[in-house]
Design a protein around this nucleic acid. Structure first.
Lengths: 225, 225
DNA sequence: CGGATTAATTGACTTAAGTCAAATAATCCG
DNA sequence: CGGATTATTTGACTTAAGTCAATTAATCCG
């Protein structure tokens, strides 16, 4: 069921983003509080979905189509308009852009989470981001136009879209917070603490650029652990 | 008129965020393209507001109340729940949090733009951010609960909220992009190119932490210009 | 399997930016 | 005004992280 997955994905995600980095308390008022708050927000989304009327729930359900991509395949290329959103069912996807010939990973997307080039999707205009399958993946593809239309007919879908966009904005705020307050080691520790499977499945090059550090620095950070 | 201001604020903001930093082309496909795209998005918001039915437009209009703050006053303190959003009518407001005893400015808000502690507002839970008047300011205050209620009755307000939240998320993505691809000098140049009045009105300490650099580094960057 | 390509580590050196401390400059207010 | 507080600059030094280059490890596929 689409929505259940979205929600569980969000739960995982929150646990990934906020936490205690070996003695390093993130939210001023403490990690535990932050977790509770964010969970509360997820509950809000869960509740919201569960309270949807049958018809709206059904429309949401039928908005997406399953699709498979092989490792290395591109779901979206730089310069393309992002006309689909991809709910990852299995496997790993990443978003990245090129800068000075280097790939800068902006997001690592695991099962249950949604992959979309946000600005390109909102603007329906060519963007700089690539979306690529890091492993073989299965995704639930939702078309932009279809969802837009559905939102017009079923206003609650707009409210749901808003909740999820708010969540994404909070995720971005958190990422920014990490960049402004944590060094390479702390950022890496936080990542592996919350997404331990990242290490087995994602090349360190991707992880390094995701953390905003060089591959060599990441390697050295890992060495002393 | 509230909405007009929101829109013109957004326009300014976009011109602030994306641009050519003395020979440094930001969007891969070029600054001009990015500007056009973001403007198009603003047009979308403008259009949306202009097409609102009388009743909805009226409700939106009557959601807010004028208020004045003196320089240094706090609109919100760390640990408080952000129950209001503040549309700045005149003056400058900033958002910041404390980290290791230092103030980290997260946003500088000018006339026409909205000041809100986003996560605290969405979660309706205590947050880490302070919102403070950098100069004497007049703001249009909108209550969270009132706006929530209005959205329930007038679905188009939800759609408007979504558009603005999408805009904020894109703003955050852009800020993240700047942190990952630009050095101190480039970030400073971009800021003053787009917000030249910042220099006259905002203490360099605030600007430095907003750019994610130390006051001394900012001073040195400014010296060689 | 085993050579070849790709990924990761390690070493040596550079550099952007941070820190600490002191000196100016600006502004505020009695 | 003029002293006091606050803001900014400048200097000297440190440091986290980057770069370049070489090596080792892993994995891919014929």
């Amino acid at each position: 069921m689409l929505h259940r997955r979205i929600v569980s994905a969000l739960t995982d995600n929150i646990l990934n983003l906020i936490g205690n980095v070996s003695g390093y308390v993130i939210y001023l008022s403490g990690t535990q509080l932050a977790k509770r708050l964010m969970s509360a927000y997820l509950d809000k989304i869960t509740d919201f979905i569960e309270r949807l009327d049958m018809e709206t729930a059904n429309v949401l359900e039928n908005c997406s189509v399953a699709k498979v991509f092989k490792k290395g395949d591109f779901l979206l290329r730089q310069g393309d308009v992002c006309k689909k959103s991809y709910l990852v069912e299995s496997g790993i996807v990443r978003k990245y852009y090129l800068h000075d010939g280097k790939e800068i990973t902006t997001e690592l997307i695991f099962a249950g989470d949604i992959a979309v080039a946000f600005d390109s999707y909102c603007l329906q205009a060519p963007g700089r981001e690539f979306i690529q399958a890091v492993t073989d993946v299965t995704v639930a593809v939702t078309d932009y136009a279809v969802f837009q239309k559905a939102k017009q007919q079923y206003p609650k879908l707009t409210a749901l879209d808003l909740l999820m966009t708010e969540y994404y904005a909070m995720w971005l705020e958190n990422r920014l917070f990490q960049f402004q307050t944590m060094d390479a080691t702390q950022r890496y520790r936080l990542l592996i603490q919350k997404d331990p499977h990242v290490i087995q499945n994602v090349p360190l090059t991707y992880i390094a650029s995701y953390l905003g550090i060089s591959l060599e620095t990441l390697s050295r950070v890992r060495a002393k652990m």
